[in-house]
Amino acid sequence: MSQLRVESVTLTFGGVAALSAVSLRVERGELVSVIGPNGAGKTSLLNVVSGFYHPQRGHIFFEGQEITRASPHEITKRGIARAFQNIELFSGLTVLENLLLARHTYLAYGLAQAGVFYGKALGKEVENRRAVEEIIDFMELEPYRKALVGNLPYGVRKRVEVARALALSPKLLLLDEPMAGMTLEEKEDMVRFILEIRAQGTTVVLIEHDLGVVMDISDRVYVLDFGQVIAEGPPEEVAQNRRVQEAYLGVEA
């Protein structure tokens, strides 16, 4: 059974359909990319999967359970994490605190213990700090640990955005253009991180504009245009598809 199933989902904004009858399946451990021109509905797709928008029609299932109407925090608790296209970090907090916030649901202690900062509160904080430090190491963010996120350069903030989603220890990771606006070197690092995340068993749904990257690392590709899936399959197949070439030529040529 597919880990994520999106069944003919329609999402409209005042008459304009951002998604029309979109269906998609993602298997456990897969790396699936979603491509398409600007305004195709890619971000909207992630918005309905992560619960920020609820579709007017259609259903969404995660690990066999319906999440169509669930709120973002309920969906996060089930194991879906998301890195936003427009960085949505907590700018008044440090990198470390941003990642610790992602451990919110793992920090199971009560108000009284928190108020004296002893016993379970102290233990859990230290334990989760360790988990967060592993991610900081992995994403090579050590120099920025205690820096306020608002003061960091764009490329680093993008990386913190992914690191924070990873700190949720998700089963399914949704990445919305994690490499957009990055330098070539930063992009290469990000690709390395994504491949490593997948190798550790996390399912990844990636939205990306760089077709070279997409064709290189994806198991399967979905192509969206005007809110509709116009092609789906392994990268080499999709690249040959006439409609895809048209859609891309129409936009990029």
Binding site: H73, L89, F90, L93, L101, H104, L168
Partner: peptide, 24 residues
Amino acid sequence: RTRYGRALVAVRDNDRAADAMGMD
């Protein structure tokens, strides 16, 4: 220095993102 304090600042800075962190 616990999740309660961080959660306060999180809803102030960005309550959408706070939602995505698994907190209500």
